[in-house]
């Protein structure tokens, strides 16, 4: 089968594709969306959706950069960087937690709540930064040292891999993970079985905010800046990755390995199209077809 896949071996695209450097490029490129998609899988499994992740990512990049450039002469780089990351992650998790509390307590549809926080958190990020990018720069200071470290391919890919393993374990091997699947499968039945539905939902959205925060820290390092306009449309990329990986927007069906495959599918596809110099507008059309195909194939197989 692989022979068929790589039949136009003569073209440069396929040869370059298999280079180790290119393969790790792909992994690094998909990591940010991939990390968000992992937690998005949890949210969608409960039958919800989180549209605010792109904005939370922007908030996280902004806070990371703001803290890093706060003072120029820092003695302990490690502590300063740790504080910046902790601040960004705490704020992101808090944003997700608020999503969860509103959804679970006021029983407003997740789409509406996270649509609101998508707008509100974006506004917060812009307000904090006065809508300006915060350059981390390329000097010899603590900020640049942060960026150099966390931009490192192995750190980025390592974070993605570690989070994948962790969340896969949580979803398939813990009581919390089973609750997530059960609520998505049948929330009413979950209620009748005495599951802590509210608590599970709150944690799921907090987790989603936290993972967007992790993605934001990596984004800040990758781009050497805090950017309140970053991550526009990332929520849809993350949802697409989960959906291609077999997650049902109705809830109850989906898995972490599936989402990883979905994420890689998009990454590999984009990379191959680019290597073969396909117009980037065509790229979008091909993605559209893949999404529909993926879901259509799953629909057919589940109807058998």
């Amino acid at each position: 089968m692989l022979a068929v896949i790589f039949s136009p071996v003569a073209s440069d695209g396929s040869r370059i594709f298999l280079e180790l450097g290119n393969l790790s490029d792909i992994l690094r490129q998909v990591s940010i969306i991939g990390i968000i998609a992992l937690a998005m899988t949890f949210v969608i499994l409960t039958g919800g959706i989180d549209l605010s992740v792109g904005s939370i990512l922007a908030l996280s990049t902004s806070l990371t950069a703001m803290w890093l450039v706060r003072s120029s002469n820092v003695a302990d780089y490690g502590a300063h960087i740790a504080a910046a990351i902790a601040l960004a992650l705490a704020a992101s998790a808090a944003a997700g937690l608020i999503n969860g509390v509103v959804i679970a307590s006021l029983e407003i549809q997740p789409f509406v709540v996270t649509l609101a926080s998508m707008i509100g958190v974006r506004g917060l990020a812009k307000w904090l930064t006065s809508n300006a990018n915060i350059d981390i720069g390329f000097g010899r200071d603590v900020a640049a040292s942060f960026a150099e470290t966390f931009r490192n391919k192995s750190i980025v890919i390592g974070s993605y891999a570690a989070l994948s393993a962790l969340l896969w374990f949580v979803l398939s091997r813990t009581v919390f993970g089973r609750h997530v699947r059960a609520i998505g499968d049948n929330e009413r039945a979950g209620r009748y079985a005495g599951l802590p539905i509210r608590r599970v939902k709150i944690w799921v959205y907090a987790l989603c905010g936290l993972s967007a925060g992790v993605a934001g820290v990596l984004y800040a390092a990758e781009n050497h800046q805090g950017n309140p306009n970053a991550g526009v449309g990332y929520e849809l990329d993350a949802i697409a990755a989960a959906v291609i990986g077999g997650t049902s927007l109705a809830g109850g069906a989906g898995s972490i390995p599936g989402t990883i495959v979905g994420t890689l599918t998009i990454g590999v596809l984009t990379n191959m199209l680019r290597l073969n110099n396909i117009d980037s507008n065509v790229e979008m059309m091909v993605k559209a077809v893949i999404i529909i195909l993926a879901v259509a194939v799953q629909r057919r197989s589940s109807n058998d």
Binding site: M1, V4, I5, F6, S7, P8, A10, S11, G13, S14, I244, V261, G262, L264, T265, I266, V268, L269, M272, L273, L275, N276, N277, I278, V282, V286, V289, I290, L293, A294, V297
Partner: peptide
């Protein structure tokens, strides 16, 4: 599906 995506990508590629 992943494999199908490969095929699509590689297939589009060759000629251009």
């Amino acid at each position: 599906i992943g494999c199908a995506a490969f095929l699509a990508a590689a297939g589009c590629g060759g000629g251009k």
